[in-house]
Design a protein around this nucleic acid. Structure first.
Length: 713
DNA sequence: TTACACCTAAACAGCA
DNA sequence: ATGCTGTTTAGGTGTA
């Protein structure tokens, strides 16, 4: 694409050189530039030109504002300066990684080798590029209008129409090229959007380049220049045979590579044809221009710190001239804005470098089989904030963010790399802090938890008790819009959803809704993930189903979650061959999970605890206990106590008091059995249910030791 | 290699 | 009959 662009530009330039007549003087300055420097025709793409244009404009404005160099001096300096400005080669080099083809982006996304933040950066840069090109297109629209206007005038003057047409045709060709580029970019962005990977909220400051791009319209720059320096000086005329025509040329070319000055020069020339802005404002493109005026939008003056309401563009102009005339304040504000732009430019350069490194890295890695076992973090190191692990090599960059989606906290990666760059999990991170502020929230994995994280895994493993809330909160918007699988287990997500709810409890359907609301990924393949949710709810002992008259909802036993133990397979689940048990199950099929027992009352302590909870109408593991750490721990303490009692009771078959139920009127709490774990003395957790009482249930019976599964060995 | 954690799919049952 | 909810099992992958 860029090559084609370059070709077009070259041919365009060539045509311009051959051109004569009305369009000739428009581009004369450019030709002079090229000839005087002995440069070959342009070989840069339109996007590069756009970028360079901005660079040049910025540089020119900066020089004017900061150095306050005389215009002639600048020009002389430029002419004598054979050494290209450093900015241009850098910019050209920087543009290369910025222009990511849709295929490349697609590849990156499919390989999921970037964190959400990094993806956002990429997307933002792409978006910014598109904006630049759009702006470029706008320039050329205007230029074409001007050109046509001149053609008409020159036709009246009796010039040769053939040459005029040639110039116009070249202009149109160039414009079409730009349009083509823009369409490609838009197509690309559409693809991203379709994949749910791009969601730029209106008004959301997600485009780091936007202010930069917006602020660098040369026409405005000229206006700025005029306002700041007082353009109606004799210098303009003295140094420029084209009256105001070469205003931009003079300034902008002062530091820019002459090779790349064509676009800007020609455009500036166009804009400078007749009193620069005044003609434009009165032209047919007036409305279009007002829409693009960076200082005016939505009826509001966008001068920094102003926000004055201007009903229409003329009133805005009036306001601009009155309130933001050339004075110390405006000049100072302008300087500040320059500084802002400078900072953004710096940031942009850094990000581009980073992107370049990322792209290079990914390309190398993706073509490189699982060869190098050495830590790959050395490729970029801490400074780049882009760390990956060797597992990604092994996975061959397949799967959705499999390797990289594990930990996306910048804090984590920094901390990890600082703590032990070699042994700790290598995690990707946000390359640009300003885009994703590093938070030191309580849920962010810290050095203390780092050591518990262990080697990188596909997802945050529940067993490491990694809190997801921080990462989730940081990337919430991303997950909402990008169809990227969150790097958390279902259990973690379900827990998060439940804990986020005001009542700390959700019905199954509400859990579904939470998933679809929070994650674009879970708006597809509902059958799969819904089934997984149900399985997790059933399987994970931290989820407790609470039945009420109108249905059932799910709560979380956070302590159980932190213990992180699944009721994994292998655990006996099949119905007990024992006929009593079968009968019991037949009467209440859910009793496998909801063993009703009065064992709890055998312990005075348990009874007291339960009575206490009953008095406070605090059901186990429901809202109150969930939301209250003290009650939660109380409930868990009681639970542990019950477990201990159960063991004791099971062993001696002691005194139960069926029928007494201090928990009556409370929610029926279904508590899963603890898995038979030889390592721990946690017997089956049996909590009180009253509504589901089965007359056939023998509270004294030792169901725990019941060979509920003949396969159990 | 093994055990474990987790995911996915599927079968099945109860219920509205 | 259908869909939802919930349970259970089996097989697979990845990690320690």
């Amino acid at each position: 694409m860029m090559q084609e662009s370059g070709t077009e530009t070259r041919s365009n330039n060539s045509a311009i050189q051959n051109g004569a007549g009305p369009g000739k003087h428009l581009l004369e300055c450019t030709l002079r530039e090229s000839r005087s420097n002995g440069e070959t025709p342009l070989e840069v793409g339109a996007a590069e030109l756009a970028h360079l244009q901005q660079q040049q404009a910025l540089q020119a404005a900066r020089q004017i504002l900061i150095n306050q160099q005389p215009l002639c001096g600048i020009k002389t300096h430029k002419r004598n300066d054979k050494q290209p400005s450093l900015q241009v080669p850098i910019s050209v080099a920087m543009m290369t990684p910025q222009v990511i083809t849709p295929q490349q982006m697609q590849q990156i996304l499919q390989q999921q080798v970037l964190t959400p933040q990094q993806l956002q950066v990429l997307l933002q840069q792409q978006q910014a590029l598109m904006l630049q090109q759009q702006q470029l297109q706008e320039f050329y629209k205007k230029q074409q209008e001007q050109l046509q206007l001149q053609l008409l005038q020159q036709q009246h003057a009796g010039k040769q129409p053939k040459e005029q047409q040639q110039v116009a045709t070249q202009q149109l060709a160039f414009q079409q090229q730009l349009l083509q580029m823009q369409q490609l970019q838009q197509q690309h962005l559409l693809t991203l959007q379709r994949q749910g990977l791009l969601s730029i909220q209106p008004g959301q400051p997600t485009l780091p380049l936007q202010p930069f791009a917006q602020g660098m319209i040369p026409a405005e720059l000229q206006q700025l220049w005029k306002e700041v320096t007082g353009s109606h000086t004799a210098d303009d005329v003295v140094c420029n045979n084209h009256s105001t025509l070469d205003l931009s040329t003079t300034c902008i070319s002062s530091t820019a590579h002459p090779k790349t000055s064509l676009l800007l020069n020609s455009q500036a020339s166009t804009n400078g044809q007749a009193s620069v802005l005044s003609l434009k404002r009165e032209s047919s493109s007036h409305e279009e221009y007002t829409q693009n005026h960076s200082l005016y939008g939505h009826g509001v003056c966008k001068w920094p710190g102003c926000e004055a309401i201007c009903d229409d563009f003329p009133s805005f102009l009036k306001h601009l001239n009155n309130e933001h005339a050339l004075d110390d304040r405006s000049t100072a504000q302008c300087r500040v804005q320059m500084q802002v732009v400078q900072q953004l430019e710096l940031q942009l350069s850094k990000d581009k470098e980073r992107l370049q490194a990322m792209m290079t890295h990914l390309h190398v890695k993706s073509t490189e089989p699982k060869a190098s076992p050495q830590p790959l973090c050395t490729t970029f190191g801490r400074e780049n904030g882009w760390i990956c692990n060797s597992q990604q090599l092994e996975e061959g960059f397949t799967g959705i963010l499999k390797g990289l989606n594990l930990v996306s906290s910048a804090t984590l990666s920094k901390t990890a790399s600082e703590a032990s760059p070699q042994s700790l999990p290598h995690t990707p991170t946000t390359p640009t802090a300003p885009l994703t502020p590093i938070t030191q929230g309580p849920s962010v994995i810290t050095t203390t938890s780092i050591h518990n994280v262990g080697p990188i895994r596909r997802r945050y493993s529940d067993k490491y008790n990694v809190p997801i809330s921080s990462d989730f909160a940081q990337n919430q918007e991303f997950y909402k819009n990008a169809e990227v699988r969150p790097p958390f287990t279902y259990a973690s997500l379900i827990r998060q959803g439940i804990l986020e709810s005001p009542e700390k409890q959700l019905t199954l359907n509400e859990i579904y809704n939470w998933f679809t609301r929070q994650f674009a990924y879970f708006r597809r393949n509902a059958a799969t993930w819904k089934g997984a949710i149900r399985t997790n709810l059933s399987l994970h002992k931290c989820f407790i189903r609470v039945e009420e008259e109108y249905g059932s909802f799910w709560t979380v036993d956070d302590e159980a979650f932190k213990r992180g133990r699944h009721i994994h397979r292998g655990r006996p689940r099949k119905p007990c061959p024992d006929e009593h048990f079968d009968e019991l199950v037949a009467h209440s099929p859910s009793l496998i999970k909801n063993i009703q027992t009065s064992h709890a009352y055998c312990s005075p302590l348990s009874a007291a605890l339960q009575a206490s909870m009953a008095e406070n109408s605090l059901p186990l593991y429901t809202t109150a206990s969930m939301g209250n750490p003290a009650l939660n721990s109380l409930a868990n303490a009681m639970r542990e106590d019950l477990n201990g009692v159960m063991e004791h009771t099971n062993s001696n078959g002691s005194d139960s008091s069926p029928g007494r139920s201090p928990m009556q009127g409370m929610h029926q709490v279904h508590v899963k059995e603890e898995p038979l774990d030889p390592d721990e003395n946690e017997g089956p957790l049996s909590l009180v249910t009253t509504a589901n009482h089965s007359p056939d249930f023998d509270p004294d019976r030792d169901y725990e030791d019941e060979p509920v599964n003949e396969d159990m060995e």
